[in-house]
Each structure stands twice: as structure tokens, then as C-alpha cells.
């Protein structure tokens, strides 16, 4: 999913040119009907009127977006003020996803670098070790994290038994727990693109810098980092995007105070109390933000590829 994939890969031959349409038809149909049409229908629903028992009435309305951005008082007849509740939930999601991304970068970069500088034959094994936990059920991983960190959990037991603390640290139901959960969920997405970039890096550049009396840290910051920047940016986006819309980590590790977009959306479709058009509108806003980010990323990658070749 790193660079190159964005353009669909390069190597292609035309052996099956004539049957191309038939080969691609199942994918086109399945994804158009089951992803593209649903997203379009969601856009339509976000402009409909809510029905009180869940579902919609087919009448055009801007109420969902209005409710998101404006507060018109209890009876809807006051002058509109900015409604901060939902903007704050979005802001918290951005902030939490950003913190999780920085945490992943702080640990993921050295890890990726370390793996990329191992002997060539042992690198796949390191990469494999990093990716295994990603393939374990996200729900199970998040529950495990909660089990480990809770007040009477093994982590606190350990700290108390070695005398580091007297009473358990309250980690679960804090912002930090959510960040840790998000970090845990998406870390491989940070490590893999950076690893790929460092592996391609020409280390004679670092040697040249060292010959010119640059210290190791100056070499890292001034020579290596600019060279692997596309990989770092790819990693940050790949962690940030899924973190922002995540549901399990904030729901299980964050508790009621640390509500994020995912939970806000989920609540609108649960039982009879929900508001489908509002949920659809919130989803549209989230998707738009993510697609803008991905677009910036794609352009940046295209530019990086141009300067490389």
C-alpha cells in the first residue's frame, strides 16, 4: 500500500487484453453494488428526514447537517449559535488520532530502521514478527489491552510487587489508554512503509556525511530523514486515517468521557433512539476529511516519484 501501489503498479503486459472487460466485470459489479452504491445512498440519507423509531422519511431536509453545526435552542426557534458538541467530538478524534500517530512514529521509526539494517536474510522474519499481532482479531487485542492495564490487572500487579508504586495506576478510561489502544491497533502501518523506505536508502550518503565530520545524529536528521520522508508520511497517514474513525479502542478503553466519532456514529444506528440522517451526515463529514487527507497524500507521493525518477 506504500508508494507505487497508488498508481496501480507499473509492470503490465497485454496477454489477456481481449477478455479484460470480462475479467474485471465481477470486481466492478461487486464493488459498485456493495460499496459505491451504499456510499451514494448514505449521501442521500444524510439529506432526508429522520423517523423517530430509527430509519428515515423520504423528505428532503438539511436538518442533519444543521444539527451538527448549529444550536437552535430546545424548540428550534432561537437564533442559530454554533453547536460545539459534535465539533468537539471530531476535534477530540483528530487529537487522539494525532497523538496515537506520534506515539507510533516515536516507536515505529526506530523499529523500522533497526529492521531495515538487519542482514538481508533475517529481515522478513522481523517484519513477520511485527505484523503477526495485526492479524489477530482487533477486538481480542483491544480486550487484551484492557485486561492487562486495568486497575487490578497484571501490569499494575507487577508495578506494585516490584515496589515501583503503592496504589494502582488508573490507565483504563483515560485518553492515554485510547492512544495506546490505537497505537496497538495500527502500528504495522507505520513500520512497513518506513521500513521499505529505509531499505531502499543508499547508506553511502551517510558514510559521505560521516567522512565530512557530521555526527551520527546530524546525519540521521539532515541526510537520512529527508530521504525517507515519503515513507514516514505514508506511515503517518496509514495510522492516522483508521485511528480517526476507530470504534473499538475508544469504546472499550476510553469509557464514556472519551467519546470519538466512531462511537457517535454507532450510537445513531443503535435501536430506536438513533437518528439515521444525522449518523449518515456525520459519516459523510468523516469520509470527506479522510478523502481530502488521502488526496493530499497521493499528490505528495506522485511528486516524490517524479523527483526520484
Amino acid at each position: 500500500m506504500a508508494a507505487g501501489a497508488a498508481s496501480g503498479g507499473s509492470a503490465t503486459t497485454d496477454t489477456y487484453k481481449e477478455s479484460r472487460t470480462w475479467l474485471l466485470m465481477p470486481a466492478w459489479l461487486t464493488l459498485s453494488i456493495l460499496v459505491l452504491a451504499p456510499v451514494s445512498m448514505m449521501l442521500v440519507y444524510s439529506f432526508l428526514t429522520k423517523e423517530f423509531r430509527g430509519g428515515v422519511i423520504w423528505e428532503f431536509s438539511l436538518a442533519a447537517y444543521d444539527q451538527f453545526f448549529f444550536d437552535r435552542g430546545l424548540f428550534g426557534d432561537e437564533a442559530p449559535k454554533i453547536e460545539w458538541t459534535y465539533i468537539l467530538i471530531f476535534w477530540r478524534s483528530i487529537w487522539q488520532a494525532g497523538a496515537a500517530t506520534l506515539l507510533s512514529l516515536a516507536i515505529g521509526f526506530p523499529t523500522a530502521y533497526f529492521i531495515a539494517t538487519r542482514p538481508e536474510h533475517s529481515r522478513p522474519l522481523w517484519v513477520f514478527l511485527i505484523t503477526i499481532p495485526y492479524w489477530v482479531n482487533l477486538l481480542i487485542r483491544t480486550v487484551s489491552m484492557k485486561f492487562l492495564l486495568r486497575d487490578q490487572g497484571p501490569f499494575n500487579d507487577l508495578l506494585i510487587s516490584i515496589g515501583l508504586i503503592d496504589s494502582p495506576l488508573h490507565i483504563v478510561n483515560t485518553n492515554f489508554a485510547v492512544q495506546l489502544g490505537l497505537f496497538y491497533s495500527y502500528l504495522p502501518f507505520m513500520v512497513l512503509p518506513i521500513y521499505a523506505a529505509v531499505e531502499r536508502y543508499n547508506f553511502s550518503l551517510s558514510e559521505a556525511a560521516a567522512d565530512l565530520y557530521a555526527s551520527k545524529w546530524v546525519t540521521l536528521r539532515r541526510i537520512l530523514l529527508p530521504a525517507v520522508k515519503p515513507g514516514v508520511i505514508a506511515g503517518c497517514i496509514l495510522v492516522f486515517v483508521p485511528s480517526m474513525g476507530s470504534f473499538l479502542a475508544p469504546d472499550l478503553l476510553g469509557g464514556a468521557k472519551n467519546f470519538m466519532i466512531g462511537s457517535l456514529i454507532e450510537e445513531q444506528f443503535k435501536g430506536n433512539a438513533g437518528n439515521w440522517p444525522f449518523g449518515a451526515a456525520a459519516s459523510m463529514i468523516l469520509m470527506t476529511m479522510v478523502l481530502i487527507l488521502l488526496l493530499i497524500y497521493a499528490r505528495q507521493q506522485a511528486r516524490a516519484e517524479k523527483t526520484e525518477g
Binding site: 460499496v35 456510499v39 445512498m41 448514505m42 474513525g245 466512531g262 456514529i265 444506528f269 479522510v290
Partner: peptide, 15 residues
């Protein structure tokens, strides 16, 4: 892969 999973979920339910 690009659309957040929760958005896909909402969209599919609505569809």
C-alpha cells in the same frame, strides 16, 4: 481500504 470501516458499515446498513 480508503473509506473508514465505520463509514462502510453505515453505508452498507443504509443500502
Amino acid at each position: 481500504l480508503m473509506v473508514p470501516e465505520i463509514v462502510t458499515a453505515v453505508a452498507t446498513l443504509i443500502f
